[in-house]
């Protein structure tokens, strides 16, 4: 005859619920025996069943926690072994994907909606959505890894002194930069090809490209070749003075003509500009302003961005070649 009451049954029910099928009977038997063992001396001493039971069960604590300890289950989502890795991945993922998404959505939507203000909301919404997805999937992946011991062991490599970031930008950084450049070239080529065959304007059933089509004869192949060469040099050489000069030369060859083409408007297809002008003149927000000044301002801004970007890149090349990162010595 059991000395326990319904309270113990409820406790045991709550506990075994969290254990796998196979182990439930065993767990329940062992726990019940222990509880009864603990109750006996109290009951023999005259304590009423209710208070004794409450004391014993209270001492055992939260049944879910008890069973988690029993089964050696982690009481955390992401444990110390992989936490830093998770954090790094999460921050990188967000830092890269969210700005790209926001900018891309804004640009595309502002063209589609023919509005400057409305797309801001869309862009922010898209940015938030991407941020939540990144956070969720990265965290989920790591929560799964935490609970899969084999995968964990391979990630849990011991930190050694070799893992310190090196004093000069290392191969890793260099490789990353080279790859980014290659990807950028690829994206540029793709975008150029795309704009040739797709446009928001059409004339006689053919799309009106943004960029002057005759540029295809000499400018685009030239710019793409130079940038590609620059990317390959980046990948192959260390960050040294030679590669910095090469980078500067490449920048000059590409950026100077690009700025000139942009500012003089020669880069753009005149037909496209015509259509854009007509279109924009109809925008309510721009009513009354001088369209030409606006256009002029826009191309100068783009030219300036190109020039500054090119100059910055060239300077960076020299900076990385020259200074090893100084140690913060006393």
């Amino acid at each position: 005859m059991s000395i326990t009451t319904d309270l113990t049954d409820r406790y045991l029910g709550a506990a075994v619920k969290h254990a796998p099928e196979r182990q439930r009977a065993d767990l329940e038997r062992e726990l019940r025996a222990s509880i009864e063992d603990a109750l006996e001396p109290r009951l023999d001493a005259g304590e009423p069943v209710d208070t004794a039971e409450r004391a014993v069960l209270g001492g055992l604590g939260d049944p879910e926690k008890l069973v988690a300890d029993w089964l050696d289950r982690p009481l955390h989502l992401i444990g110390p072994a992989v936490f830093l890795l998770w954090k790094k991945l999460l921050i990188w993922g967000l830092a890269v994907l969210v700005p790209i998404t926001v900018v891309a959505v804004y640009l595309i939507q502002s063209l589609v909606q023919r509005d400057l203000v409305g797309p801001i909301g869309d862009a922010i919404g898209a940015g938030l959505s991407v941020a939540m997805h990144v956070a969720f999937w990265v965290t989920l992946a790591f929560a799964i890894v935490e609970r899969s011991t084999d995968a964990l062991r391979s990630l849990r490599k011991q930190w050694t002194v070799d893992d310190l970031p090196s004093r000069t930008p290392g191969r890793g950084e260099q490789l990353a930069e080279g790859i980014i450049q290659l990807v950028a070239v690829g994206a540029l080529v793709f975008a150029l090809a795309w704009q040739q065959f797709n446009s928001i304007y059409e004339s006689d059933g053919q799309p009106v490209p943004l960029f002057e089509p005759s540029l295809w004869l000499w400018w685009w192949p030239f710019a793409i070749a130079v940038t590609l060469l620059g990317a390959i040099v980046q990948l192959v050489r260390r960050f040294d003075l030679v590669s910095a000069w090469v980078n500067l030369a490449g920048q000059v060859l590409v950026t100077v003509p690009a700025v000139w083409l942009t500012v003089t408007g020669a880069a753009f297809n005149p037909e496209f500009l015509e259509r854009l002008r007509d279109e924009v003149q109809a925008w309510p927000v721009l009513e009354g302003t001088a369209i030409d000044t606006g256009f002029g301002g826009a191309v100068i801004a783009i030219g300036a961005i190109l020039a500054i970007g090119g100059a910055w890149d060239a300077v960076e090349g020299f900076r990385k070649a020259r200074k090893p990162r100084t140690v913060l010595a006393g």
């Binding site: 726990l31 222990s34 063992d37 001492g59």
Partner: peptide, 28 residues
């Protein structure tokens, strides 16, 4: 030995351990 008995013995011998620590430890 068994759970509760061990608990008593250990407490008597001066090892202050709680039930919800000891039982999972035994299983581990």
């Amino acid at each position: 030995g068994y759970g509760y008995g061990l608990l008593e013995t250990l407490e008597g011998a001066g090892f202050d351990v709680e039930a919800n620590t000891l039982y999972p430890l035994l299983r581990r």
